[in-house]
Design a protein around this nucleic acid. Structure first.
Length: 809
RNA sequence: GCCGGUGUGUCGGAAUUGGCAGACGAGGCAGACUCAAAAUCUGUUGGUGGCAACACCGUAUGGGUUCAAGUCCCAUCACCGGCACCA
């Protein structure tokens, strides 16, 4: 009698063995494969079963690659700077470094329960001075290249976190982290000139094997548009206003102009009559929060009293101010063509401004226009020498024509803004800059890095726009590295994204104190072949990392300019809302968190790994169901027993079994390659049922069992190793190679196909795979003889190997 | 508003990309074992009608293409996600 499946014994045994005798070793001959997880923030809450999913997926993929003969880079580390640790410190008076260290230890223990094949020698922690030395080093390099610069400007400010935020961190006008409404604050900021990379960040997306959805999100975020800048002279003033437009073809339809209230000329355009109203409007706009500004769908505005001259036809168009024009996009000024733009139309209606149609769908003017005609297709009208032309052609040609006429220039614009990089918080990398009254901002010399984050007594953000570091005089006051005179340190810190924008590089050379990464190692092990993590980083982390990598490529640190060749986004695992039963994020407050520790104790790591995959398509969100894990546990137990019974039985290999073995290998490999991991598991179950049936009769031979065990090993590594040993396999199952299949062995000689009448299946017949069409049709008709009786056969269809359909009346 | 995605039994989900809809699992029902329960095993399980063989209906809704549609086309609805005055 075979022993039954005992996950505790098996898993304990193999954990010890793997520790002593690692399987993923470099021999200098194997090609490398770098499979990376998005590293976690070491939260005090620990992991729930949802966090496991991505790690299981990446480990399965890693082990598969390892079995295919690759040397694996599969590291793990900690994105440990950030607000939660700091908030915890504020509440409990414990230094963030201490709570962070505790959390790291705890989560590391939890992560080890996954039995993922992480190489802990490569571990990194963004809060380690030996790590953030290089985070600062990159900043200094960017500063030297003019990509990091200081600017005083109104930025997104979270009143609850009391810090500035990047554009990317504002979601629906709210703070990405705490969901407070974001306000504006005029602050001196460190900015990174990510816009200098806009074009490359956009066009290089083509090179990437990423989900289309993520590429699209980045494309939209970068937001490239083609158009023209057109210069309008201000009537009676020695000033020119340049507008940006994507529709220069509609220039004859421009009946007014609108400037953002923040535009440099805004106040200057006011006349004596309008001055009071203009100044009030500018002031009011400056007081409005982003949310107010977005929520006010109703257009507001004020007439400046001045007019601009349309360069094309000399028309005098009134200049207005309105906050629907954004100061920091394009030129902060637009020409308005109400007939062909929804917003301009609404504005014109509200303030009773003229509307001139210049594109007509059918050559005729629309009477009493009720909405703008925004389609670019049609014929030009009311447009001087352009009349009669196709507007789509004109749209394409107009920028060049305007440039030739000297009225402006062809240009492109991006929605992407420069990256607000300073945070007025404690728990982050100090920005390595010294402010000297004489020399200005001076970078801390490289040999003096890292600028250590000093201890403070009070972590609280001040709310004044200064970081808590500003209160430590002994740290702030220093000397200028250039002239030696007294100077002050920059007290802002970097955003959490700083450390995570390049961590994947450091894993391959994490102890190097001479360089960010050794060039040879970088060349040998990088870039990342497969990156696995949640879709929530689609524009933030993934865009920043691409920017950093491109910069490091430009300064010769690495020899590739995209960090992640392939990306996979796993879906979330949700809990159920206790009342509504709807799927919701697992959260403490909802009390629907499922702990992986409990699951591992009760069912074992292998069962939990299988269930994490079986639960649903890996790229979609799934809902956790406690009963579901029973199913995979039963499968593992039955599989284990089946193998044990067959070892005892010691059956002979047969042609049928060999075929079955090739089919199984084919099914698992193709599904795994297409990342259909849920159906990989159901495939195992299906074949196991077949093997269980066979065990009752002829039995299953050892080679077939060994194949199944090798195939299942990446998914259930402990069971894989245990059964491999029981079957007498050499060494570790992970060194045994991935089974291969022969295409010729996976097709059957005799196949069963359906026979239909008028597309409805009435019978099935067995045919030879290569049987002639006429024979098959004859067989089909014979099978349906009584049903075809009295019917007129109109058409007979045979799709080879698939189906017979008789069309009859 | 714009862009993208999804919609299949009681539930999670399959369906080689136009070829037997519901694989695999969960749950249910029935049975075996048991004093009993759990565990395990066996059978059954989309709906309606029928003793039955079988027939009809069925992949959000309405239409279409096709010998054949969950899959393709058109329209509509619902939910989810992204962007949101970017000129």
């Amino acid at each position: 009698m075979a022993t039954s499946y005992n996950h505790r014994l098996i898993e304990g045994k193999w954990r010890e063995k793997w520790e002593k005798d690692p399987v993923n070793v470099e021999d200098g001959k194997k090609p490398k494969y770098y499979c990376l997880d998005m590293f976690p923030y070491p939260s005090g809450n620990g992991l729930h079963v949802g966090h496991w999913r991505g790690y299981v997926i990446s480990d399965v993929w890693s082990r598969y690659k390892m079995m295919q003969g690759y040397y694996l880079i599969h590291p793990m580390g900690w994105d440990a700077f950030g607000l939660p640790a700091e908030n915890y410190a504020i509440q409990h008076g414990i230094h963030p470094s201490i709570s962070t260290a505790e959390n790291v230890a705890n989560i590391k223990k939890q992560i080890n329960e996954i039995a993922a094949i992480y190489d802990w020698d490569r571990e990194v922690n963004t809060t380690d001075p030996n790590y953030y030395k290089w985070t600062q080093w990159i900043f200094v390099k960017m500063f030297n290249e003019g990509l990091a610069y200081e600017k005083e400007m109104p930025i997104n400010w979270c009143p609850s976190c009391k810090t500035g935020l990047a554009n990317e961190e504002v979601v629906d006008g709210k703070c990405e982290r705490c969901h407070s409404e974001v306000t504006k604050k005029n602050l001196r900021q460190w900015m990174l000139k990510i816009t200098a990379y806009a074009e490359r960040l956009l066009s290089d997306l083509d090179k990437l094997d990423w989900p289309e959805k993520v590429k699209k999100m980045q494309t939209d975020w970068i937001g490239k548009s083609y158009g023209a800048e057109v210069d309008f002279k201000v009537d009676g003033m020695d000033e020119t206003i340049t507008v940006y437009t994507t529709r220069p073809d509609t220039l004859y339809g421009a009946t007014f102009m609108v400037l953002a209230p923040e535009h440099a000329l805004a106040a200057k355009l006011a006349t004596d009559e309008t001055r009071a109203a203009v100044e009030k409007y500018i002031y009011d706009a400056s007081m409005k929060s982003n949310v107010d500004r977005m929520q006010d769908k109703e257009k507001t505005g004020v007439f400046t009293g001045s007019y601009a001259i349309n360069p094309l036809n000399g028309a005098k168009t009134p200049i207005w101010l309105s906050d629907y024009v954004l100061a920091d996009y394009g030129t902060g000024a637009i020409m308005c063509v109400p007939a062909h733009d929804d917003r301009d139309f609404a504005f014109a209606k509200k303030f009773d401004l003229p509307i001139i149609q210049v594109i007509a769908e059918d050559g005729k003017e629309i009477e009493n226009m009720e909405e703008a005609y925004t389609d670019a297709r049609g014929t030009m009208i009311n447009s001087g020498e352009w009349n009669g032309r196709e507007s789509a052609d004109l749209k394409r040609e107009a920028p060049k024509m305007i440039e030739k006429l000297g009225y402006g220039k062809k240009t492109v614009n991006y929605k992407l803004r420069d990256w607000v990089f300073s945070r007025q918080r404690y728990w982050g990398e100090p920005i390595p800059i010294i402010h000297c009254p004489d020399c200005g901002a001076v970078a801390v010399p490289e040999d003096q890095l890292p600028v250590l984050l000093p201890d403070v007594e009070k972590y609280e953000p001040t709310g004044t726009g200064e970081s808590p570091l500003a209160a430590i005089d002994s740290w702030v006051n220093t000397t200028c590295p250039k002239c030696g005179k007294p100077a002050k340190r920059e007290t802002n810190t970097m955003p959490q994204w700083a450390g995570s924008s390049w961590y994947f590089l450091r894993y391959v050379d994490n102890k190097n104190d001479k360089a960010l990464v050794d060039k040879e190692k970088a060349h040998k092990y990088l870039p990342v072949d497969m990156y696995i993590g949640g879709v929530e980083h689609a524009v933030l982390h993934l865009l920043y990392s691409r920017f950093y990598t491109k910069f490091l490529y430009d300064i010769g640190v690495v020899d590739f300019d995209e960090p992640f060749k392939k990306l996979f986004n796993q879906g979330m695992i949700c809990g159920r809302d206790r009342e509504t039963g709807a799927a919701t994020k697992m959260s403490k407050s909802l009390g629907n968190i499922v702990s992986p520790d409990d699951m591992v104790r009760d069912y074992g790591c292998d069962a939990l790994r299988l269930y994490e995959l079986f639960i649903g398509p890996p790229e979609l969100d799934s809902i956790w169901d406690d009963r579901g894990i029973d199913g995979v546990y039963r499968f593992l137990a039955r599989f284990y027993t089946m193998v044990m019974n067959n070892i005892e039985k010691n059956a002979e290999e047969t042609d049928e079994l060999v075929k079955l073995r090739h089919k199984l290998t084919h099914v698992i490999t193709t599904r795994l390659e297409s990342f259909s991991l849920n159906t990989v598991i159901s495939g195992f179950m299906e074949y196991n049922n077949k093997f269980v049936e066979l065990t009752k009769t002829t039995g299953v031979d050892k080679e077939t069992l060994k194949t199944m065990v090798r195939l299942i090993a990446p998914f259930a590594p402990h069971v894989g190793e245990e059964l491999w040993e029981c079957l007498g396999g050499d060494g570790s199952v992970f060194a045994a190679g991935w089974p291969e299949y022969d295409e010729n062995m996976i097709s059957d000689n005799v196949i069963t196909i359906p026979v239909q009448i008028n597309g409805k299946t009435k019978a099935t017949i067995d045919i030879a795979a290569d049987e002639a069409k006429d024979d098959v049709l004859a067989k089909g008709k014979e099978a349906l003889a009584d049903k075809l009786n009295g019917l007129n056969i109109i058409k007979e269809i045979y799709v080879p190997g698939k189906i017979v359909n008789i069309v009859a009346k």
